[in-house]
Simulated assay, not measured.
Amino acid sequence: MASKVLVVDDDKTILNMLYKALKSSGIEADLAISGEAALELISGKEYDLILLDINMRGIDGFTVIKKIRSQGLTVPIMVVSGRKDDGDTLYGLDIGADDYITKPFNPVTLVAKAKALIRRSRATDTAKTIISAGPFTYNTSTLRFYKNDVEIPLSSKENSMIKLFIDNVDHIFSKDMIYSVIWGETIIDENAIMVYVNRIRQKIEDDPSNPKYLITVRGLGYRFTV
């Protein structure tokens, strides 16, 4: 089955060039000329890779990455940007991009990198469908969460938070980090975070008033431990 790639750029010349390069290599491609259009396509289709520009009118590429990851989606993302600053590259990778290539680029090189990302992603998906930690398991394919083999129903935001925590056992997440990843915003609403943390504790803890899995680290944030 042919790979399916979403190309996101507000420059029609770049879109057409990438479309032709991918098609000539046997890769199917959908095109989106804005971050808004990309998010709409992603909500209804599955892709093997997203090629994403950063500087776009409306929703920029960094925000698109945050929104994709906040939904628990693990589709590989390659940033294709005119920004050459190392800080931008590191920031993009830090919030969830898998690779970063700067414009101008050689289409042959980009397609080769795209194919490599797709291969790695498929190998990882096959090997890591189930994440286990103590009594908990999380199925990254079905987005279902279990404790002692009993499924725990989760809302969309709860699911995204559980995925973040179980994927990073014993890692301390500040409220800023949680809000940035889950909500895709930089101005945090501490009450919203506390509400969802309490809801998750009600579902996973033996004694929610004395949590032993989702721990508050005073002055730092939260840690998921088993």
Rank of each mutant, 00 (worst) to 15 (best):
M1L: 10
S3K: 13
S3H: 11
K4A: 01
L6P: 02
D9F: 13
D10H: 03
D10T: 06
D10E: 08
D10A: 10
K12S: 06
L15W: 04
L15F: 03
M17A: 14
L18M: 15
A21K: 04
L22N: 03
S24K: 14
S24V: 06
G26H: 05
I27E: 02
I27H: 03
E28C: 03
A29V: 10
D30R: 12
A32E: 02
S34P: 08
G35N: 08
E36V: 07
E36N: 12
A37Q: 12
E40T: 11
E40Y: 04
I42A: 10
S43I: 05
G44H: 13
G44L: 15
G44I: 06
Y47L: 12
D48Y: 03
I50L: 09
N55Y: 11
G58V: 04
G61R: 07
F62N: 01
I65W: 02
K66Y: 00
K66F: 00
G72R: 05
L73P: 00
L73K: 14
L73V: 13
I77H: 09
M78E: 02
M78D: 01
D85W: 01
D85V: 04
D86G: 01
G87Q: 08
D88N: 11
T89K: 15
L90I: 13
Y91Q: 05
G92Y: 02
D94R: 14
I95E: 04
G96L: 09
T102N: 03
K103L: 10
P104I: 04
F105M: 06
F105P: 01
N106F: 10
V108Y: 12
V108C: 01
T109D: 12
K113G: 00
K115P: 00
R120K: 14
T126F: 14
T126A: 15
T126G: 12
I130H: 08
I130M: 15
I131R: 07
I131K: 11
I131G: 02
A133C: 15
A133W: 12
G134I: 06
P135Y: 01
P135F: 05
P135S: 05
Y138Q: 07
S141Y: 08
Y146H: 09
K147V: 07
K147R: 15
K147E: 01
N148T: 02
V150C: 06
I152Q: 09
P153I: 06
P153Q: 06
K157T: 09
E158Q: 14
E158T: 08
N159V: 00
N159R: 15
M161F: 03
I162E: 08
K163P: 00
F165H: 05
D170M: 07
D170F: 11
H171M: 09
I172Q: 07
K175T: 03
D176G: 01
I178M: 13
S180C: 10
T186K: 15
I187C: 03
I188R: 15
D189S: 12
E190I: 14
N191H: 11
A192Y: 05
A192V: 06
V197L: 13
N198I: 01
R199C: 07
I200N: 01
Q202V: 00
Q202P: 00
K203I: 03
I204D: 02
P208I: 06
S209F: 04
S209P: 00
Y213I: 05
I215C: 11
V217Y: 01
F224W: 08
